[in-house]
């Protein structure tokens, strides 16, 4: 029996990620403590408010341990706010905003505007057959990628919305709310590779 996949459960749609993992027969746990973190073989940072996740992680002494675990190679997958938390650079964060980092990218928060500009669209996604139906909800965009980054998905106009490196996966949208399981399957294959 492999160790479970952890879902950071400080705030956001962590339950939807656990349901998606369950749908592909993966055990998961909610991560709120160091003990939780130590017991998982991969970590998902869910959608939510990146500012809130950061503050709660700092307040509960999880920020540095999470950052260390990720930089030490813990396989990690971030969606939307989770992508922001994994970016090395946040181009328009609030004062003092910083994530765990690990992906050599720059992201812009709320890059499409307010909620009226939230949208659904079909995307091509490298390694996945057929379109991925994606929900972008006050979503960030990836504005710059470093040389260690592989681009997995772009909007029709070329803007980048999905990336990976050897151990980390980051996307600007929410497969966990559209019933899309294939990106989680990709993450599991990255963990167990």
């Amino acid at each position: 029996m492999p160790a479970p996949i952890g879902v950071l459960a400080l705030q956001g749609d962590f339950r939807e990620h656990r349901q998606t993992l369950k749908a592909i027969d993966q055990e998961s746990i909610e991560v709120r403590t160091l003990a939780d973190l130590a017991s998982c073989r991969g970590l998902i940072i869910p959608g939510g408010e990146s500012t809130v996740m950061q503050k709660l992680a700092v307040a509960y002494d999880l920020f540095e341990p999470l950052k260390d675990a990720i930089s030490a190679g813990l396989p990690t997958f971030g969606t939307c706010a989770g992508l922001i938390m994994l970016a090395n650079e946040i181009s328009d964060g609030i004062v003092g905003q910083a994530g765990f980092g690990g992906l050599d990218i720059s992201v812009r928060r709320n890059a499409f505007g307010n909620q009226l500009d939230s949208f659904e669209v079909d995307l091509d996604f490298a390694g996945i057959e057929g379109p991925v139906h994606a929900a972008f909800i006050r979503a960030p965009l990836i504005e710059r990628v470093g040389s260690s980054i592989e681009v997995l998905s772009r909007l029709a106009d070329g803007r980048i919305v999905g990336v990976r490196n050897t151990s980390m996966l980051g996307i600007a949208f929410h497969p966990e709310v559209t019933g899309e399981t294939r990106i989680h399957e990709l993450f599991v294959s990255m963990i167990d590779h």
Binding site: A9, L10, Q11, G12, D13, F14, R15, E16, G47, G48, E49, V52, C80, A81, F112, G113, Q115, L116, D117, S118, F119, E120, V121, D122, A135, F136, I137, R138, L155, A156, D157, H174, V177, T178
Partner: peptide, 25 residues
Amino acid sequence: SSSIPTSTTGTPLVKRGLAEMMKGG
């Protein structure tokens, strides 16, 4: 955002989805 073709805004999914992201908050 208006430059993105074939996307749809204001759907029940994105409306309900924003509230999903606020959960636990």
